[in-house]
Amino acid sequence: MVETAIKKVSPLDGLAGPVGGNVKLTSNGFVGKVIIRGDSDNKDFVMAVKDVTGVEIPTTALTFNEGETYSIYWMGPDEWMIMTPEDGEVALETALREKLGETPSQVVNVSDYYASMRLSGPAAREVLKKGSPLDLHPSKFKAGNCTGTRFAHATIFMVQRDEEPTYDINVRISFAEYLWNYFVEASREFG
């Protein structure tokens, strides 16, 4: 068996960020992401996820719960995304599947499906308003919220981290370069 140095490639590698200081755009690297589907009225399901991650499944739409290692994001009435630090996803996937056993559910590793980038800075919200038809006013979407939406032609899953504002944006990797370049162009007017 031939062994060569293993290289990991992200679609965001080598892309230049915005020039000015009012919008920052960075790659979040290979954050681990696992989709979990199930019924939050089923105590076995909720407990199993809690046992493995130490985090309660959020049942309020557009919210997420954060723990020490894992954070869980509401994506839909029966769908959540669990984020882990890089390379934690396989162990998490295995542990969840084991713990859930016969409980109706699905556990899917989507760490490579989504690229994750961080858009922040005073003008970050203005940049998002150019492509997202969502109401991003601080009274409507704030730190602690997450949502699926679109930005221009890309379907995205977006998390607001703080009121700076800082957004983490997950997008299918085949759209990542397009989305990144769109953000950079959209940032240009804000310096």
């Binding site: 085949s174 397009y178 370049n181 959209a186």
Partner: peptide, 18 residues
């Protein structure tokens, strides 16, 4: 708006594109 030239339509690329 910004939907012109390269941003007119997303070019979806595979991981082996380079």
């Amino acid at each position: 708006g910004h939907d012109v030239e390269d941003l007119f339509l997303q070019a979806r690329k595979t991981p082996m594109h380079s």
